[in-house]
Structures are given as structure tokens and as C-alpha cells.
Nucleic acid binder design. Sequence first.
RNA 1: GACCCCAUCGUCUAGAGGCCUAGGACGUCACCCUUUCAAGGUGAAAACACGGGUUCGAAUCCCGUUGGGGUCGCCA
Length: 490
Amino acid sequence: MLHRRIIAFRRCRAPPMSVVTRFAPSPTGFLHIGGARTALFNWLFARHHEGRFCLRIEDTDRARSTPEAVAAIFDGLTWLGLGWDGEPVSQSARAGRHAEVARVLQERGHAYPCYASAEELVEMRDAARAAGRPVRYDGRWRDRDPADAPPDTKPVIRFKAPTEGETSIDDQVQGRVTVANAQLDDMVLLRADGSPTYMLAVVVDDHDMAVTHIIRGDDHLTNAFRQLQLYRALDWTSPAFAHIPLIHGPDGAKLSKRHGALGVDAYRDQGFLPEAMVNYLLRLGWSHGDDEIIDRAQAIAWFDLAGVGKSPARFDAAKLTSLNAHYLRRADDRRLVRLVLERLCARYPDGLVAEAEARLLRAMPGLKERARTVVELADAAAFLVLPRPVVRDADADRILDPTGRARLAMLVGVLRAVSVWEPESLERAVRDHLAAAGPGGPKLRDLAQPLRAALTGRTVSPPIFDVMAVLGREESLGRLADTLDGSGAD
RNA sequence: GACCCCAUCGUCUAGAGGCCUAGGACGUCACCCUUUCAAGGUGAAAACACGGGUUCGAAUCCCGUUGGGGUCGCCA
């Protein structure tokens, strides 16, 4: 740990070099939570160092890449506020450059054509597995005369990897990791159709984009060795590597669809705020002492690779929710009104009352205090914007038993007499009424709950006198009348 | 299976050989406040995986065991 901090310190003090990071997702689906965190770390690192954060779409496998997925990635990053610098790079557009580099490698004797068929390779792997040997390409075309090439067969181009010695990377998160070169086989650089594989494309693109720090999931750790070998064969300086631990599902296994962890858009649908998401993701695998609530500006100021932990973290929706509640309470009222209105309009196609927006805005301070997600916020706000009569739930009905109704009926007169329809005067009127009844009579809650049930249709709401003020005199008395008039029918 | 990585409360984590009677946060439970629910306040239960070393002293360093994870494609 000490060692890592010192390295980080030195890096900070080094003459200003311009940091370039990149996020390089493959567009085969939505932006999932792990990808979002990788993007966040890259973004924060670049912003912290006042460098560039680039986006590259790894679509070299065109069969599995879709424009919808690319759009989903842009959307996800935009929603999270992780803007990228410059135009996104499409890896497939650079195939010519990749092939050119492969040619250079071949000319320098670092690559060779391989004519092994798909069947041969399967046999090779099966045999190795059966014999308990490591599963890898055996290098059968490595030193073979190209004259032996079978006719009418297009070869793949393989990297001639060192077979002896070892390769080490000094990872900014994992420390120094070493592997024996004998463990690494000759990877394919160019497919038979001349298209590049990921392994070649990343190296070429990262180099051409002048990437200085590769921050990615540690499922790429073993790739780093082969990539480093490529950098060396090409005589290029390698970027620094930082392999961050993966995020696991609640069961400790690699996060996947079956955990219900979907794209970031799913979290937006569930009512999470991007700032909460970012704060949560940041704390998953990175820490700054005991700090928990870290806003964007603070994150940029504090973020470093030394604070990244080495062990995988599990995704915990409860903590995300709690963080979300925190940010919801501090969110701008107008913004929340917009978000709530969006949902309510979709949910109630028959339309909302004309006063909907005004009521929501006035009630928002009381509403947002009680919700953890935008979904809960919309649920709790619905009673304000739906036309009369109020739809009551079972708990509210229970409150409005004969006793509750009797108390309500008495209150109507008291409320009617209130001249200024504001929370303070309404509360004073009701409390005075209570005091007049003397000790031993009903408590405030005995009146507040029936009021709440009649006015909101629920047993839970913001302070009831605030609710009355938001609804206004006419609407409030109207709702009470609805309730009382219907008493015979209930 | 081979290679690589990881290991502190249920979860996220603090911890840089003595500041540790192991701290914080989420969650859980209790109490207070109270107009319901939240919020807030107070408190409680809850962890250094195991075994060996090194050291005057180990959560921290080393080795092993166990457990978990990742990677082994003409996927990325």
C-alpha cells in the first residue's frame, strides 16, 4: 500500500504529461453497470489530470455489433454525465491501418501466416484438454515454409510470441504481475478475411490515439501481457495499465443479466438519479478514507488509482437506494417536477388536472424528503394531480370509519372558518379546536389521519396542513365533501 | 485442468507493524423526536477465512491451506 501511494505521488509530481484515457466498449448490448464504472474511472482520472477522455467503439466483430447498442452506450454515458472528448472512434473504420501494422510485423519477422483449419484447432484444443496440457495453439506454422501452404486456403496472420522468459506488467492497481511466456501462445492478429482481431486493434488504436493510461476491468489482465509483447515488437512505448476488479452480483458471481442488473437505462427507469449512480459506482472499489457522500467536483479532485482496491465488490441495491434518497432530497425542485410529470403523464393517459405542475412544485420540498427514488416520488405525488374524487387505499378506508368520519364532519366547519388558507393558520385552527374540547379528548393525530385519508387517499403523506395549502381551499373542502357525501354508499 | 488475481461486520469499506478495546457507511433492531411517513438524534447486535512463521509486538510482512474470482476463440 505504501509502495503504491509513493508511485502515485511520483506520478503526480512528474512533469505535466497530458493524460489520455479511453473507454472502449464493444457494442453488443447496453451500457451495463460494470462498463459504466470503468467509464467513470477513466473519466475521473482524465478530468483529475486535466487530460482527455476518449471513446472508442470496439466493433471489429461486425456481426455482433448493432447501431442500437452504440446508441445505448452514448445515451448511458450522457445520462451519467460522462462526456467524452472529440469524436468517438469506430474501430472497424480503422481496419486498413490494422492490416498495415500486421504487415509491418510480418516484415520484421514478428508475425507469420498460419494455415491451420478450424477443425485442426478444435482437435488441438481437445487433445490438449484431454491430456491435461494447457490449451493453446501449438505453433505448427510458426517456422514452416510458406511453400507448404495448402492450395486455395487463406491464412490467418499470427503473432510470433516469445516462447522463453517471462513478461511482467507494472499494473497501477494490481502491482507487478508476471507470467511465463510459455503460457502465451501465438495469437491471431488478422483473420483469414484480412480483418483485424481485437488484440491487434486495441494496441494499434491505443497507440494511435496516444492513450497514456488503460483503465479497464481485470478480465483483461491476461490480455495485457500479449498486448505488451505487441508494443515491444512494434517498438512502441506501452501505456500504463490499471486493471480494476470486476463487480459481482449479490451472490458473488460475475455480474450478469440474471442478477437483474441491466443497462444503466434500467436504473434510470427505476428512478435513480445519475449523481447517485455515479457516487455509488465510485465507492464500489475506490475509497477516500471514510468519505461516503462524494459529489462530482469532489470526486474529480480526489480520484486516484492508488485508492482503487484489489478485491471484487458486490452490487448492493440497498446502498444505491440510500444514496439516491440523499441526492433526491438535495435535487432541484423544478428538475424533480419534470421527472415526476413525465412518469405521471405516462401512467395516467386520461390526463392530469390543470394545476398539476404548480401543485407539484409547491409540494416538492415535502415530497422529496419522503421518497428514495423518482418512482416513489411519483407514487407519492399522484394524489395531487389526479382529478376528484380521490381514490383511497384500504388503509385510508380503515381510518375513515364512523369515528373518523364524525371527526372529519366536525372539522369541516372549523376549516371553512379559516380565513387565510395557509399551513400555519390551518394548524392553529385545528389545534384551537382541539384545545376547546379539553383534555381527554382526541389528539391531533386523531384528526390529522382522517384528514390525510380523505385528502390524499392514503395514510402517508407530507404534513397534512402543507397538503391542504397546496391543494387550496376549494379543492380541499371539495375532497372532504366527496368523502363525507359518499359515507352512506361506502 | 493450466495460468493469474483476490480475502476485515450480511454488503461497501477505513487500516501504510504499536495510535485497534478493529473505525465509518448501507442494511437490521431498540429508543427519542413527532401530525402519518420520512428525515434527524441516541444506542445495540455484527468482521480481521484457517494454519504456520518473522518480530519485543501482526488485520498489516512471508509461506502454506481453504474459499472466491478472472482468463485460456479467426469474441471483445
